[in-house]
Amino acid sequence: MTKEIEKAGITIVQMANLIPVAKTVGANRMVPTISIPYPLGDPSTPKEQQWKLRYHRVGVALDALTTDIKEQTVFKVKI
């Protein structure tokens, strides 16, 4: 889906738990997520920590939107 959206001229970032799959389907900008059922959080952690995880990953994704790339790129996130 991301490949088709980019063909239309819209820059997109795929946030994915399975980065190898995202690469295979042709995503150009990828941000790793935490897990399949909770991509941007971990319900076993305090709400403040979840907020920090989400805030950081969405920030990385926004930065990825404005980054000029030449090839498929996985943007690094803090653990």
Rank of each mutant, 00 (worst) to 15 (best):
E6D: 05
I12M: 12
E6A: 06
V58P: 00
G59Q: 04
N17L: 12
P20E: 09
T45W: 15
L62P: 00
E48P: 00
L65C: 05
A64T: 01
N17T: 10
K3W: 10
S35N: 09
A27H: 03
L18P: 00
E71K: 10
L62V: 11
D68F: 07
K70Q: 14
A27D: 05
L53E: 08
Y38G: 07
E4Y: 09
L18S: 11
I36C: 12
T45K: 13
K78Y: 10
T45D: 10
V13K: 04
G9A: 06
I12Y: 03
I36S: 14
L40N: 00
V77Y: 01
Y55P: 00
V31M: 04
T24W: 11
H56G: 03
Y38A: 12
P39K: 01
D68G: 08
L65G: 03
Q72C: 02
K78E: 13
W51Q: 13
K52D: 12
V25F: 08
V21E: 13
M15A: 03
L53D: 06
L53C: 07
T67V: 03
L53M: 13
L62D: 06
A8G: 09
G9I: 08
P39M: 07
R29M: 05
Y55S: 15
D68P: 00
A16W: 02
I34D: 06
L18A: 13
V58M: 08
A8C: 15
G41H: 04
M1S: 10
V74M: 04
Q49C: 12
K23R: 14
L40I: 06
G41C: 07
Q14A: 15
V31T: 03
V25P: 05
I5H: 11
T66L: 08
G41Q: 08
L65H: 08
M15Q: 02
G59W: 03
I19V: 08
A16D: 11
K70M: 09
G26A: 07
I5A: 14
K47C: 12
L65R: 09
S35P: 05
A16T: 04
L40M: 06
V21P: 03
P37S: 02
V77I: 10
G26H: 07
I79C: 12
T67P: 00
F75Q: 05
K47Q: 15
A61E: 00
V60A: 06
P32R: 05
E4S: 14
P46T: 15
Y55C: 11
